[in-house]
């Protein structure tokens, strides 16, 4: 009798797990199909190289893709090296201050992006005089993803086994060699995850960028020009442009495709890195 109960319970658990998995897959599939159907009339390769026309109702996304790429690149080129360096410092530090820094980072990570947008506007836009520009947007994004990069990188750096660190010390390897040849390679998967997540957050960010990068859909010609990212464009076209639904959906499809490419590229990179 008891055995039967246990079996039933196992089956029930399995059922619940199966149903929730299917629900999750179903929901995202439905989302993608819905997007594709709505976007269908506007989909095509012209999205990649034509400039937007009639407030986004027609034309492509060229200027928006360029602005997105530039802002994400500025943000990551700043956040990745700074974040990894900070993570190394944190993981090596034995002082109480490290905990203070970690707590502040968690606070920063939890800050609503609209607040970070205002901070970015004041700090980089006003104080540094960068105004509404790709640079201000990129710097604000860096500020936003920095805590994420630091925490993930630190987890990765700590994942190098203590035994290997001891072995490295016993071979009289310097801290720098130990870090470069043993610790960082072990941290690579975490670092890659941190970068992917950061790109994801950066691509999806709207609130912080409306304030800092501006909303102009013209082609930016320098880092001091304002620019509109994909997410901001989707938000604007969906909300402010009558008859913009198909265009917004098309831009969303492009955004999803970019995220997919980024993910796959990182997985491939990691595979290559590991087999080397």
């Amino acid at each position: 009798m008891r055995k039967l109960d246990l079996m039933l319970r196992d089956q029930a658990l399995l059922g619940v797990a199966l149903v929730s998995t299917l629900a999750l897959i179903g929901a995202s599939t439905w989302l993608v199909i819905d997007l594709l159907v709505t976007a269908w009339p506007r989909l095509g390769w012209h999205l990649l190289w034509q400039a937007p026309a009639r407030a986004g109702r027609a034309g492509g996304l060229s200027s928006i893709l360029v602005a997105t790429g530039a802002i994400v690149a500025i943000g990551l080129l700043l956040a990745a090296p700074l974040g990894i360096a900070a993570a190394v410092a944190l993981s090596e530090a034995r002082s109480r201050w490290a905990d203070v820094v970690r707590t502040s980072l968690d606070l920063l990570a939890g800050a609503p992006s609209i607040v970070l947008g205002l901070v970015g506007l004041l700090l980089f836009g006003d104080l540094l005089g960068l105004g509404y520009s790709l640079a201000t947007g990129g710097l604000t994004l860096a500020l936003m993803v920095l805590p994420l990069v630091i925490r993930f990188a630190e987890v990765g750096i700590r994942s190098a086994p203590a035994e290997q660190r001891a072995a490295a010390a016993a071979l009289a390897l310097s801290r720098w060699t130990t870090l470069r040849r043993i610790v960082l390679p072990a941290a690579l998967p975490s670092l890659a995850a941190a970068i992917t997540l950061s790109i994801g957050r950066a691509l999806a960010e709207t609130a912080a960028l409306v304030f800092t990068a501006g909303g102009s859909d013209r082609m930016p010609t320098s880092w001091a020009d304002p620019g509109r990212t994909l997410a901001v464009h989707i938000y604007d076209v969906a909300l402010n442009v009558a008859g913009g639904d198909a265009s917004a959906a098309a831009a969303a499809v492009v955004l999803l495709a970019i995220l997919l490419v980024v993910q796959v590229a990182l997985i491939v990179c990691l595979r290559c890195g590991r087999s080397r």
Partner: peptide, 21 residues
């Protein structure tokens, strides 16, 4: 400088510790 000491004194541990290289 402990590095000078450890150059003269090698060590093997209980569990093998090859580096991920």
């Amino acid at each position: 400088d402990p590095v000078l000491v450890r150059r003269r004194i090698g060590m093997i541990f209980q569990r093998p510790t090859p580096f991920p290289l």
